[in-house]
């Protein structure tokens, strides 16, 4: 499996990371190195093996479906790069 520049660009897009056109060949090369390393996993016979879901066999705790927290608008917004009138502000999404 070899990754070309087009695939590298597509992955960057999916990851929402801007990558300059000039940097794509190097990025594709690095992906190929890492994926080449990962290819070793194909040597393992995994027939009938369950994929791991939880490393410790425990049942997750349940709790009542109720409000346990809230009323912290100021704290929630305190680290926002742009907060206005009690909301997070972002560039226009809908024309």
């Amino acid at each position: 499996m070899s990754i070309d520049q087009g695939t590298a660009a597509k992955v960057a897009k999916l990851a929402r990371i801007q990558v300059a056109e000039d940097d794509l060949p190097a990025l594709a090369g690095e992906f190929n190195n890492i994926l080449g390393f990962i290819e070793q996993l194909n040597e393992v016979d995994v027939d009938g093996v369950e994929p791991m879901v939880s490393v410790t066999p425990m049942r997750l705790k349940r709790r009542k479906d109720g409000v346990t927290d809230g009323n912290q608008q100021e704290k929630v917004l305190s680290n926002a790069p742009d907060a206005r009138e009690g909301f997070f502000a972002v560039p226009k999404v809908v024309e």
Partner: peptide
């Protein structure tokens, strides 16, 4: 982040991510 995005992307999820989770079980 990009390697992770790739191994989880449609068409590769089974070949990479699920296989790795099976190896983790072993």
């Amino acid at each position: 982040v990009m390697v992770g995005t790739y191994v989880l992307s449609a068409g590769f999820y089974d070949a990479y991510y699920n296989r790795a989770r099976k190896v983790r079980t072993l």
